[in-house]
């Protein structure tokens, strides 16, 4: 996706956030002794954001702010390593999808933290590596150390609960 298209997507996200803030500010509490009001800052910030986003779009369209090269995501490797099977964009997207599944598993199931972490860390690193088969054992060892190590350090030594 080009830089300009990313700007449009971000503009949409900012407009949605500002809209939500304006909608919620309508219900903000008001008290007689506070003449400024609880909703004033949210309104001011949300409206300022809408104005600034409009200005950003104007800059993008007229002043050449958005004429940057398309974002290809990957760069040249400069190594003799075997070429990955998938593009770096696809690998990143798959890894992030795996991360979301990991968070969902932690939130909605009773699967132990270390098991979910072991699976995610291994699969995540293999996806990022690109399926060339390099460093499978290292990935597994790293995943095991991270999963078990985090569990032991946080629950046994730091006495901090894990998801």
């Amino acid at each position: 996706m080009s830089r300009r298209n990313w700007t449009w997507v971000t503009t949409g996200a900012v407009v949605i956030l500002a809209g939500l803030a304006i909608q919620q500010a309508a219900n903000a509490p008001e008290l007689a002794f506070d003449s400024f009001g609880s909703a004033t800052i949210p309104y001011f910030v949300a409206i300022s954001l809408l104005v600034l986003v409009a200005l950003m779009v104007f800059e993008e369209l007229t002043l050449g702010e958005g004429l940057a090269k398309p974002d290809r995501g990957s760069a040249e490797t400069g190594t003799n390593a075997p070429a990955p099977r998938w593009s770096i964009g696809s690998r990143t997207a798959l890894s992030l999808a795996a991360f979301i599944v990991y968070v969902v598993l932690l939130d909605l199931t009773d699967i132990p933290f270390w098991v979910a972490t072991l699976i995610f860390t291994y699969i995540g690193s293999r996806l990022l590596e690109g399926g060339t088969g390099r460093g499978r054992i290292v990935s597994l060892v790293v995943a095991a150390v991270v999963a078990v190590g985090t569990h032991v350090v946080f629950t046994e030594f730091l006495l901090i609960d894990l998801p």
Binding site: F99, F120, G124, G135, T150
Partner: peptide, 26 residues
Amino acid sequence: YLLMPPILVFCVVGSFALNNRMFDVW
């Protein structure tokens, strides 16, 4: 590729640990 997944795990642990709730992770 070996570093990024563990960092994401630490992001989850760090977000969760403060209040012990998944809301913070989301």
